[in-house]
Design a protein around this nucleic acid. Sequence first.
DNA 1: TATCCGACATACCGCTGGTACGTACTATGA
DNA 2: TCATAGTACGTACCAGCGGTATGTCGGATA
Lengths: 234, 234
Amino acid sequence: MSKLVPKVPVPGVPGASRRAAYSASTKRALVDVAEQLFTEKGYAATSLDAIVAGARVTKGALYHHFSGKQALFESVFERVEQEAAKRIQKSLRGQKDPWRKATVGLRSFLDVVQEAPYRRIVIQDGPAVLGYERYREQEERSTFANIVEIVRATLDAGSWDLDEDMLQTFARIFFGAMSSAGESVATAADPEAAARRVEGAIGFLLAGVQSLVEQGVAMPSARGRDDAAAADPE
Amino acid sequence: MSKLVPKVPVPGVPGASRRAAYSASTKRALVDVAEQLFTEKGYAATSLDAIVAGARVTKGALYHHFSGKQALFESVFERVEQEAAKRIQKSLRGQKDPWRKATVGLRSFLDVVQEAPYRRIVIQDGPAVLGYERYREQEERSTFANIVEIVRATLDAGSWDLDEDMLQTFARIFFGAMSSAGESVATAADPEAAARRVEGAIGFLLAGVQSLVEQGVAMPSARGRDDAAAADPE
DNA sequence: TATCCGACATACCGCTGGTACGTACTATGA
DNA sequence: TCATAGTACGTACCAGCGGTATGTCGGATA
């Protein structure tokens, strides 16, 4: 077919060998095109033929760089995740107060989750394609790591002797809450209003936790019994 | 595997016509087998050939009852969802105190989410196969409806003039939190301990909300501003 | 300049979801 | 009771898909 972008892969790569330059650009082109198509039509509805056509290569090239469709997806997934994590981390920089940190982090997460690639690739298709095991592994060292960081800072403020398991549990809960809320924000008729609602709701929950902190209410421990729901009325 | 029950579809169906009886049993057999295979190997890795073989029919029969693989999945999905919703609803029966209701509901949800069919079909494959639109539509009238109900009862106790949008937001947040937490419970080395941690953590959040209620702190409204994060320090 | 290997291209295969069409059975009306 | 129509499947087939085996060619290395 018409190769209008024929040879020169990366305009100026002086030191690297030509072969390596070719290789890198081809791989990147594949990931680029794959990300776009996966985002637009989803994993299942995107054929490898469409991807290699978009990248102006053949299946041979694809299978030279990736072991298969799923591996390609994982590369795309990883990039989208890291991009998201980087943005969130950046927004957190400079924030000292843990509660402010939580608020800011929530805001930037809601921003991230409104973008099509993250929603489709990470949230929607991710679990089904990668399986929950690999999905969790990936998240654990990017976006989720940020949440853990925030939760740790926030709960540390309470000066409990919180154990790691419990912290992870809290992080999971908040992460799930924000993912779900983020999806509802992204699909809402008025995303901006929906985002404000979510911020309000989670802010309210945080305020509740903070209130308990000030009252000196004990944190439930891992060995906690069912009376852990601290202030159960009557 | 071996379905030695070849012809007689439903032993005693007096009134119904024989054809209708055959039809009903065939359809049910397909859904049964599909649920099992979808649960075991996932949607993508389950072929229609395997399903029809398990149900001892042919693809002609399948396509007579369902418009395609996705429609069959949706039938399975619906059944699993309704089963889950029914169980949760049952556990709620008799509970008067809204906070107790929340605790009990959480417990039964954690039970449900630990079962393979719900996890694999509803949580893991559901969003990817049905798309978020249909996924939400389905959940809205089953399991999620229960959560809304609980949240409504709980927040009503605060005697706010909470608007519907905000209530939905809270419900979404809790639902997401519980789904995510549930998954972590199900995949934990010690599910029972993990479940207790989740109960403790969410119970703590609920206690926080309750604390704010007692203090008479205002609920954020839909038109709330960014100061909605009520008691932000300093 | 001989050789080797990385970076692809080409050709092909088995399986899968889906379709077109045929057929057996049966409820119904004349 | 017999023609008829429609339901409930079975059979045969196909296009497209992910994946593989193998060929090719240019640059790095000796």
